[in-house]
Amino acid sequence: MRIGELAARTGCSVRALRHYEHAGVLSSVRQDNGYRSFTPDDAARVRLIRLFLSVGFTLDEIRRFAPCWQAGRGPDDPVEADVAADFYRRKLADIDAQLRDL
């Protein structure tokens, strides 16, 4: 599907989708005519990106762990899995602190 259709399916602007692609959290394939082409799975990916952003993740943080959630599993390397788990624990603690402040 083209970027306009992905935007319509996700309620996300075309500009935001281009930004996500530039930031490395979303990818597309260029067709011969130069248009971006996305898969149906990309709609779910965009919704997940927006969810992560809405709870305080940055695009850099999302990109760092994107291979895990895009594959639907954790890192293969146990050390990297521990790093990811520690990161998520810290992020949850930050969110809990924000909730207490609110």
Rank of each mutant, 00 (worst) to 15 (best):
36 R>L: 05
34 G>Q: 07
40 P>T: 00
44 A>I: 05
97 A>T: 10
30 R>V: 15
15 R>K: 15
62 I>F: 04
74 G>W: 01
93 A>R: 13
78 P>G: 00
25 V>I: 09
34 G>L: 07
87 F>H: 12
74 G>F: 06
101 D>R: 02
22 H>T: 08
27 S>H: 04
14 V>N: 01
35 Y>N: 08
83 V>G: 03
25 V>P: 00
41 D>A: 15
21 E>Y: 08
84 A>G: 09
21 E>N: 08
47 R>T: 10
86 D>M: 09
23 A>L: 12
64 R>N: 11
30 R>Y: 07
39 T>A: 14
36 R>Y: 07
23 A>R: 10
16 A>D: 06
19 H>L: 13
73 R>Q: 14
70 Q>S: 15
98 Q>A: 10
18 R>Q: 15
39 T>Q: 14
41 D>F: 07
38 F>E: 01
24 G>K: 08
51 L>R: 15
12 C>K: 00
48 L>F: 07
81 A>Q: 14
38 F>H: 03
60 D>F: 01
53 L>T: 06
87 F>M: 08
84 A>P: 00
100 R>G: 02
72 G>R: 11
89 R>L: 06
32 D>G: 14
49 I>Q: 00
31 Q>L: 12
44 A>W: 12
78 P>C: 02
78 P>A: 08
32 D>A: 15
63 R>V: 00
12 C>T: 15
2 R>W: 04
89 R>Q: 10
13 S>M: 02
62 I>L: 08
101 D>F: 03
100 R>P: 00
95 I>D: 07
20 Y>R: 03
55 V>E: 10
49 I>K: 04
44 A>E: 15
30 R>P: 01
4 G>F: 02
39 T>D: 05
75 P>C: 12
13 S>A: 08
76 D>M: 13
96 D>C: 09
62 I>R: 05
56 G>I: 03
